[in-house]
């Protein structure tokens, strides 16, 4: 049992980087009880209750149910989830990380807050559409196949950035179908409500950032000029990257610095 407690603690750090509470907690609501509203071009999605409440949360779920939701994007009843839940990124999670996230979910205070329905634009309503999207997207991996030339460190960084951190959820341009554009990975995203800057080592992006700049940013949220990040990103740093080990932050920087440089996307 001591081990399980330690796992939940590790899971909490993973959850911080994964932004679970940011999407699954209403403003000043109970952690994980749901209610956060996510505005997208397709409508407003409402983060669900993921606390272990038997009626309104995941109280009756098994580890296998949780695994299927996280890595396959399907509910225990077989419904396809919308990609507002970044499961396509989470689909590459390791077994160990799924275990620890599951331990963390079970450690949350149960809440009987009922889920609210998503408010989708006409034409996107219905689980069928989510299913179609899922079928289409599932054929294409969000994460690039491992590059042979990558060091262990870069590989670890790629996992933290693309899988757990799903940085591309905000920082990658999207195709018409709303999936991340893998050909311009992390070249800046327009997902509302804010533009997230180009992270690639291009003159439009972060070509000038040194290892020290990256470590100050991922550790404290400090930009190279001494100013600080805000808008959604402050939370990613505060609850995510700042709690990682120094080695993990260095791995993220090593991966990000070797990305293919892309210019900012032309505004459409």
């Amino acid at each position: 049992m001591a081990l399980a407690a330690a796992d939940a603690e590790r899971g909490a750090v993973l959850a911080g980087l994964g932004g679970c509470l940011a999407c699954h907690t209403a403003d000043s609501g109970q952690p994980g009880a749901g209610g956060h509203r996510i505005e997208t071009p397709y409508g407003t999605f409402v983060g669900s209750n993921i606390t272990p409440d038997p009626l309104h949360g995941l109280g009756t779920w098994s580890r296998a149910d949780f695994d299927r939701a996280m890595r396959k994007g399907k509910s225990p009843a077989g419904r396809a989830y919308w990609p507002a839940f970044p499961w396509p990124s989470f689909s590459e999670l390791t077994d160990e990380d799924v275990d620890d996230l599951w331990a963390w979910v079970q450690s949350l205070e149960p809440s009987a807050r009922p889920d609210e329905p998503h408010e989708l634009e006409r034409g996107y309503r219905g689980r069928l559409k989510a299913g179609l999207w899922r079928t289409f997207v599932h054929r294409q991996r969000e994460v690039l196949p491992d590059d042979e030339s990558w060091s262990e460190e870069v590989r670890r960084g790629a996992y933290l950035v693309n899988t757990l951190g799903h940085c591309g959820g905000c920082h990658s341009p999207r195709t018409r179908l709303g999936r991340e554009d893998a050909t311009r990975r992390l070249a800046g995203g327009d997902t509302p409500p804010y533009r997230a800057p180009n992270l690639t080592p291009h003159a439009d992006g972060l070509a000038t950032w040194t290892d020290d700049d990256w470590s100050s940013f991922l550790d404290m949220g400090m930009l190279p000029d001494g100013d600080f990040t805000g808008r959604g990103m402050a939370r990613v740093v505060n609850e995510g990257t700042s709690l990682l080990t120094t080695e993990d932050r260095e791995a993220m920087a090593a991966y990000l610095r070797q990305l293919t440089p892309h210019p900012d996307a032309e505004p459409e």
Binding site: M220, M222, A234, V237
Partner: peptide, 15 residues
Amino acid sequence: KAQVGQVGRSCGGCH
């Protein structure tokens, strides 16, 4: 260092 991050949140928060 952790407190510098907290001070920074007050900068970003106002911005």
